[in-house]
Computed example of a mutant assay.
Amino acid sequence: MNSRLQGKYVVITGASSGLGAEIARQAAACGAHLVLVARRVDRLEHLKAELERKNVEVSIHAIDVSKREEVEWGFAAILSSCPRIDVLVNNAGFGVFDEAGDAKWEETEAMFQVNVLGLISCTQMVLPVMKQQRSGHIINVASQAGKMATPKSSVYAATKHAVLGFTNSLRMEAANDGIYVTSVNPGPIATEFFDTADKTGTYAKSVGGWMLKPEEVAKAVIQAIGTNKREINLPKLMNAASFLYSLFPRTVERLGRRAFNKKS
């Protein structure tokens, strides 16, 4: 539980399933007012009904974050109905595992549109409000792939590297306005993500021991809200590997080649 969330207005993108939905559940348990954003309105409605049974204030907005015009009018509606925005969780994202030469161009464009441009677009919508409030917390869900790239995820890793670059710059820019900025860098999470990223199921099976539960990642996110936490890195062992990679990239790439190539 996080008492700092009581009565706060929390916007969550990609809230219709997986990590986003779990963050919504846990934020609701802390007494937050929820604004849920996703493309799949039927799933949003189902989650809204679930949370409202617990006497939680929930509004839902069908927005495709990859489309700037939808973000603009969607967030205009959000801002007109909410007295303030205390937290933005940029969770919307997806990946497709392919080698660089095999990556379909439409999937490459889509990953950048959602994972990078969508995240930036949503952030730009709430920043003026948070600056005016002189408070707020922006949480960007990146990935360990943004710290340590591996084969067969070249495009996905590129999007998450971009998210971390944006997040790190934004953190410094927003500090003078009382706005916290946190990146979330999880390893593989047991969600529907792999239905798209790993259609054969081979990778998910091979890294089963590393798989995080969405509940535990959501718990770490909830606990960080309202604190000036720079990063959330899970699991610890994978983050240690990312740290070693930053120090000794050539050695880690050579020693880890077999494990890295498990996306096949």
Rank of each mutant, 00 (worst) to 15 (best):
S3A: 12
N168L: 09
P188K: 08
K213M: 09
K147E: 13
G226E: 05
S242A: 15
L212D: 01
D98K: 15
Q26M: 14
S135D: 13
I120L: 08
K229L: 09
M172G: 15
V114T: 15
V207R: 12
P214K: 04
G118Q: 02
L255P: 00
T150F: 09
K213S: 14
P235E: 13
I222F: 05
I139G: 02
S206E: 07
K67L: 09
L47R: 12
A174T: 00
M125W: 03
Q133A: 12
K213H: 11
A29Y: 09
E192C: 08
R257L: 05
G226Y: 05
S135E: 12
K147R: 12
I23R: 08
T167K: 13
N261C: 05
A197Q: 10
E52G: 05
S121W: 00
H46G: 06
E216K: 02
M130C: 14
E99L: 06
A157W: 12
L79G: 08
L5N: 08
V114E: 07
G20W: 02
C122H: 00
V116E: 03
D198W: 09
W105M: 14
I60S: 03
L117A: 12
F75T: 08
N115L: 10
G146N: 09
S59D: 14
K205F: 10
L117C: 09
V129I: 08
F243Y: 01
T108V: 14
N90V: 07
V181I: 15
V252K: 04
F260G: 12
E215C: 00
S264F: 04
N176F: 01
R257D: 11
G74W: 06
A21F: 09
I63Y: 06
Q6G: 04
A149Y: 08
M148V: 05
L44D: 00
T182S: 04
D195A: 14
A241Y: 00
I23N: 05
A204I: 15
T108P: 06
R40V: 05
V217F: 04
M130Y: 14
L5R: 14
A158R: 07
A204E: 07
L164W: 06
A220Q: 13
N176C: 02
V129Q: 14
P186G: 00
K263N: 04
F194Q: 05
K263L: 10
G136W: 10
T227N: 01
I78A: 01
F97H: 00
V37R: 07
H33I: 07
S16G: 11
S143C: 08
A32P: 04
V87P: 01
E70F: 10
R230D: 00
N115I: 11
E50I: 05
V11L: 02
H161V: 04
L170S: 06
K236D: 08
D86T: 03
L237F: 10
M211Q: 07
Y245G: 08
Y180D: 09
G201C: 10
K67C: 00
T150E: 12
A218F: 03
V252F: 03
E253C: 06
Q113N: 11
V10W: 13
M1T: 11
F112Q: 14
